[in-house]
Every structure is written in C-alpha cells, then in structure tokens.
Simulated scan of single mutants.
Amino acid sequence: MRTAVITIAHGRHSHLRALRAGLLRQSHPADDTIVVAMDDPELGRLAAADRLSGIVMDVEADTSALPLAAARNEGARVALARGAELLIFLDVDCIPGRGLVASYRAAAADARWSGALLSGPVTYLEQPGPAGYDGERIELLDAPHPARPAPSPGAVVGGEDRNLFWSLSFATTAATWRRIGGFFEGYDGYGGEDTDFARLAEDAGVGLAWVGGARAYHQWHPTSSPPVQHVADIARNANVFRERWGEWPMVGWLQAFRERGLIVGGVGDEVCAVAAGS
C-alpha cells in the first residue's frame, strides 16, 4: 500500500525538522512525503537537507488566516496524483513514534478498519531543555491526551464520538478520502475545519477508529487556554460551521471568549460575533 505523509506548515522550522527526523526512524518508512508550505519558501530548503523522498509545494497564503483546510486538500491531491493509496496527515508539531506509519498501514489493510478515519493517540510534550527533544527516546515520554482513546500498541478500537476526531494525526485510504470529499474550504485560520471534516465523514458513512500503535508526540510551543490569539478565526469559523450544521462547534472556547468580552452574542441561538478590533 503506497503511503504518503502530508504535512502543512508555515514557520515552525525546528518542529518540521524533528517531524522529518521521526519519519526517518520509522520501522516501516513512508513511500512519499508531501510538505505544503503556506507562504514559507524556506521550507523547501529545509526539507531538501534530509534523506526523505517527496516534494515541497509552495502555496500562497494570507498568514493572518492560514488556509488549513485548502492546504490539506492540496497536499492530498498531489499525493494521490503521485500514486498514494494511503494518506497520513501529520501536524507539523508532531514527532511520529517509530510505529506510526506501520500501524496506520496495518489498520488500513484490515477489512474491519480500511473504510474508517484512522486516528492515533497524541502525547502533548512539556517544554524541552536547551538541547531540544531526544528523538531516539521520545517514546519514553508517552502519555496520551486523556480526552481521547489511547489503545495499547497493536490494538485498534472503533470510536463513536465524531467530536473526538482531530487532524493532528490521522490516516485514510485513497478510496475513503474520495468518499468523504476532503475538507470544506470555507474555513480560514484556526478552528472548526477538522470538526466539519468529521461531520462530512459521518454523512458519507465513514466511521472512526483509534490506532494504538500510531503514536505521535506533540512538541511544545507557546499557547493560551482558551486560545485568545485565534479568537477572530474561531469566531468567524464558528459562524461558518453553524450555518452548515445548525449547531455551534468549539462551545467551550466560545463560552470562555464571551466571558472575557472577546466575542459578543451567545453560543445558543444567537449569532457569535467578533468583538470590535479583533
């Protein structure tokens, strides 16, 4: 099963180096890698410095609201044109565990799971020391996010809650990708597009499965909770989602923003608007 790993990126150069070093350590390497560089020409030179096969695609982007959904679709389009039968999407912040590619391949080859969205457990790492993370020992830090299923390596379990899908690390066969139709490109910037994708998958009759061996390790970077740096994107995308699906996504974040005076309106039947100046 010809496999391509697709990563979209703008900045995060050291994170991409660690991701690609992880791909070089795989027990079963990917056949192809696709990096979609969103308005970041330096990524091509960075990727050329390692021994991975693949290409870097440069796409124009408004860096104030990166086209995450469209970039993933473009990466998939190119991967499929290059013969991919299995698409693995891996966030630029993620270091793949050694068994990630092999585990996704094994699940996709299993008739019980081949038609599902395949997701792997992700560990959120603490801030590293001056030397960075030791990629050779990254699995020793394994502590998957508690809000999502984390089967043991070698196990795959079906998932019922579509809201648990995340785009940090997932895989789909080429046939399933085409069945879903890709990400809806009406979202710009952070938030909502992966929840929408899970709804599209459900409407297409595509289930969700959690692949225990497809472990990844999310590298630390500065953030906030709720992610106030993305309030304008999240509010705008929440409106798009509600218009499409009749309900609000990211309800916890919207409520937190409203309590802080960063958005106006409610999270029920009212329109959620970005506060002036956002």
Rank of each mutant, 00 (worst) to 15 (best):
G186Y: 04
P96T: 07
S167K: 01
A232H: 05
T173E: 10
G213R: 05
A108K: 00
V35L: 06
Y104S: 01
D194Y: 07
A61D: 09
A232M: 09
L24G: 14
G186F: 08
H13G: 14
E247Y: 10
A275Y: 05
T223K: 12
P153D: 09
D40G: 03
A150S: 15
E42C: 04
A108E: 02
D203S: 01
Q255T: 14
L200Q: 12
R199N: 05
L19H: 14
P226Y: 07
R179F: 03
L90K: 05
W210S: 08
T176Q: 07
G205N: 07
R137T: 09
G44W: 03
V264D: 04
R25G: 11
P222Q: 07
R244N: 03
V56D: 03
A69K: 02
L208P: 02
A276S: 15
F165E: 04
A49N: 14
R179W: 01
D161A: 08
V101K: 00
A4L: 05
G154P: 05
G252P: 13
A81K: 15
G186H: 06
S119Q: 08
V59L: 14
T172G: 02
L68F: 14
V36N: 04
G83F: 10
P130G: 05
Y187Q: 08
R45K: 13
M57T: 10
V264N: 00
R25H: 13
R148D: 12
W166Y: 10
G213S: 12
T63L: 13
E185L: 02
V5N: 01
M38P: 05
G129W: 07
W113L: 00
G75Y: 03
T195A: 12
H28D: 15
R17L: 13
R236N: 10
I88S: 00
G115V: 00
S114C: 05
Y133F: 14
N73W: 02
G191C: 04
A175K: 00
G205F: 09
P144T: 04
G182H: 09
D58Q: 15
G99L: 03
V36P: 03
G158M: 14
S169K: 02
C94Q: 14
V274P: 01
V231T: 07
L52Q: 06
G192W: 10
H230Q: 11
L68R: 09
L141P: 13
A9K: 02
S103L: 05
T195W: 13
A209P: 06
P121K: 04
R242K: 11
W166G: 11
D93P: 08
P121M: 07
G115F: 00
F197S: 02
A198E: 08
R242T: 11
L164A: 14
A21F: 14
R72E: 11
L208E: 10
R98H: 06
A108T: 08
D134Q: 12
A175N: 03
A102F: 00
A131M: 15
Q229L: 15
L86I: 14
A108I: 14
T7N: 03
L19T: 10
W177R: 04
E42R: 03
A235S: 06
V5Q: 01
D110Q: 00
P128Y: 09
T33I: 02
V5T: 07
I234Q: 01
L46Y: 06
A216S: 15
A9I: 13
I263R: 03
S152W: 01
F257V: 05
A37C: 05
P144Q: 08
A102E: 12
P121G: 06
M57I: 15
E136I: 10
H230F: 14
A238G: 15
L87E: 00
